[in-house]
Design a protein around this nucleic acid. Structure first.
Length: 280
DNA sequence: AGTGGCCCCTGGCGGC
DNA sequence: TGCCGCCAGGGGCCAC
């Protein structure tokens, strides 16, 4: 499931694809539902002939900047991915939107059709709703603790809330809370400063490691994450996700599975006690 | 402010 | 072999 590391991996691969600087020569919308806020034909006419200037990321959004003040925001949601291929190369049945460039085709594929593409002249309208980037240098440990201490929500729900912090999804919240030794149901405002500091460290550590490994690709299914057809490698480093019922790598207690915010949640009841955890 | 429910959508999987 | 029903999951929206 694309979270920050998978989106970042996608951006890095796209940046190396050679498309930046070239012009959109044709657009095929194969599934209208992928286009947000306007009809496919209108989308097509606005983007046709534009030059791709830059590709970046904000939270879980991919951000394509085109000439003429056109910005394409793409949210991959559950199963979206990109692939760059030659015009004559085999298409696949899950391609939803195709942007043709002189150098090849940028294909948005999305098995579950949850992904969304928004063309806008004012990307901030969407992006300003997002919380801070986890690697934002202005997000100090002290600030992170202050933000947490204002909220009574369960800490996992906060980490999943994109307006609180941008980029974490179900996999990395669990891995992060495990690394920090914090129970997912602890209210945000119950975390002591040292715990908040530990949590921010864990977020950065886990996300960095995941990015270095090209993200996480679970299973072999058609909807699982691939950037440019390449699976990531971080699934080999998961500590609790996908390991419920197995012994904790640190203390051998069996990993438990519960539900937080309608999300399946894995944690170690020994390493992540519900009470304040000073020893970690 | 917080929680919970529903919806979108499809492949995968367990059960029979 | 094959059909059926259920599940996962990000985020938007709504009710309480």
């Amino acid at each position: 499931m694309p979270e920050l590391p998978e989106v970042e991996t996608t951006v890095r691969n796209l940046a190396r694809s050679g498309l930046i600087g070239s012009i959109v020569t044709e657009i095929e919308v194969l599934w209208d539902g992928s286009i947000q806020g306007e009809r496919a034909e209108h989308f097509r006419s606005r983007l046709l002939g534009r030059r791709l200037r830059a590709i970046s990321r904000r939270g879980k959004y991919l951000w394509f900047q085109f000439s003429g003040m056109q910005h394409l925001l793409v949210h991959l949601r559950m199963s979206g991915s990109f692939r760059v291929r030659g015009w004559s190369e085999q298409s696949d049945p899950y391609e939803r939107v195709l942007l043709h460039f002189d150098k090849g085709v940028l294909a948005f594929r999305d098995v579950r059709k949850f992904g969304r593409i928004l063309l806008t002249t004012n990307p901030e309208e969407v992006l300003r709703r997002l919380g801070r980037e986890p690697f934002d240098w202005e997000l100090t440990p002290e600030l992170f603790h202050a933000l947490l201490s204002k909220r009574g929500k369960m800490v996992k729900a906060l980490l999943l809330d994109q307006t609180f912090l941008a980029g974490l999804g179900n996999i990395y919240t669990d891995e992060t809370l495990y690394r920090a030794g914090i129970h997912p149901k602890r209210p945000g405002n119950s975390l002591l400063p040292e715990e908040a500091y530990r949590l921010l460290d864990a977020i950065r550590f886990v996300l960095s490691a995941a990015i270095e490994n090209g993200g996480t690709s679970l299973g072999e299914g058609k909807g699982n994450f691939r950037s440019h057809d390449r699976p990531g490698g971080y699934q080999n480093y998961l500590q609790v996700v996908q390991h419920s019922g197995e012994p904790c790598p640190r203390c051998n207690t069996l990993i438990e599975r519960t539900t937080v915010s309608q999300r399946s949640t894995c944690y170690c009841p020994q390493c992540q006690p519900f009470t304040h955890n000073p020893q970690h």
